[in-house]
């Protein structure tokens, strides 16, 4: 569909980390307005894939397109939710401060925050049920609340495409439910949500589309089509032993795929 480009197209993406390829030639295109999961075992390169898409890691080869254009041109419509563990929650700021950071990218260097930005941040907090805690010091939040704050920060960016790294990891039941409801509401606005997901039990229930990866792409398609025993076996099973072995040898020989 050339007239209607995909919210995310990943083409022949290879990412190396310390000379070791952690993703090999990943290639997929996803449809608009779906809730999508990225599933695979530990060390399969799920977080790496998100970071590569967000331009946080150098690509050894391949490209990423957002609605048919490179990320640099579409930054303002893509929001990223990192894993909770990636920041120090003892940092001296409160909940609203964190969410307001979702607005910083939009403001020129010299411009102060406007009332409109604060209103958007509060609205985002309201959507995740955290408005009452807006003045709370972030070190006093529970795991689920931390996750909601991170999601609110992404909502404040008013993006069209959301990339989230394990939003359901270590959260309480109430938060999980709140996040699922939020996803549905984003979907109804035609927005696309892509999540790294760990819990295989909920994949069918929560996600329209599923991307299975383990160092390379195993399958990408509607969940009911691709989330089957065969693909799961390939993703989680031992058949990748050879690829892992080769990766390790390459690392030892300091192989480096040249960037294009």
């Amino acid at each position: 569909m050339p007239n209607n480009p995909s919210p995310l197209e990943v083409h022949d993406l290879t990412v190396s980390y310390h000379h070791r390829p952690v993703l090999w030639g990943v290639d997929f295109t996803i449809p608009e307005g779906k809730i999508i999961s990225i599933v695979g075992p530990n060390g399969a390169g799920k977080s790496t894939l998100l970071k590569a898409v967000m331009g946080l890691l150098p690509l050894s080869s391949g490209y990423v397109k957002i609605y048919g254009e490179p990320l640099q041109k579409k930054r303002s419509i893509v929001a990223y939710v990192p894993q909770r563990e990636e920041v120090d929650w003892d940092f001296p700021i409160n909940v609203l401060d964190v969410v307001l950071m979702g607005r910083y990218g939009r403001l020129p260097f010299y411009r102060r925050l406007r009332e409109e930005d604060t209103a958007l941040a509060k609205d985002a907090l309201n959507q995740v049920g955290m408005l009452e805690l807006q003045n709370r010091q972030i070190s006093q939040l529970s795991g689920g609340q931390q996750q909601r704050v991170f999601i609110a920060r992404a909502l404040a960016q008013q993006a069209t495409v959301y990339l989230m790294d394990e939003p359901f990891a270590g959260v309480d039941a109430a938060t999980e439910k709140a996040i699922v409801t939020l996803f549905e509401s984003l979907k109804s606005q035609g927005k696309t949500v892509i999540c790294v997901h760990h819990d295989l039990n909920t994949v069918i229930e929560y996600f329209d589309w599923t991307i299975l990866i383990n160092l390379r792409l195993v399958a990408c398609g509607p969940t009911e089509e691709v989330f089957n025993a065969d693909n799961l076996n390939t993703t989680y099973g031992g058949r990748l032993g050879l690829l892992a072995e080769i990766t390790e040898r390459l690392r030892q020989s300091e192989w480096k795929r040249r960037a294009e």
Binding site: K51, M54, L56, S76, Y80, M101, G102, Q157
Partner: peptide
């Protein structure tokens, strides 16, 4: 990392 993704 987040700051980088917002274009800062």
């Amino acid at each position: 990392q987040f700051s980088q993704t917002t274009g800062l």
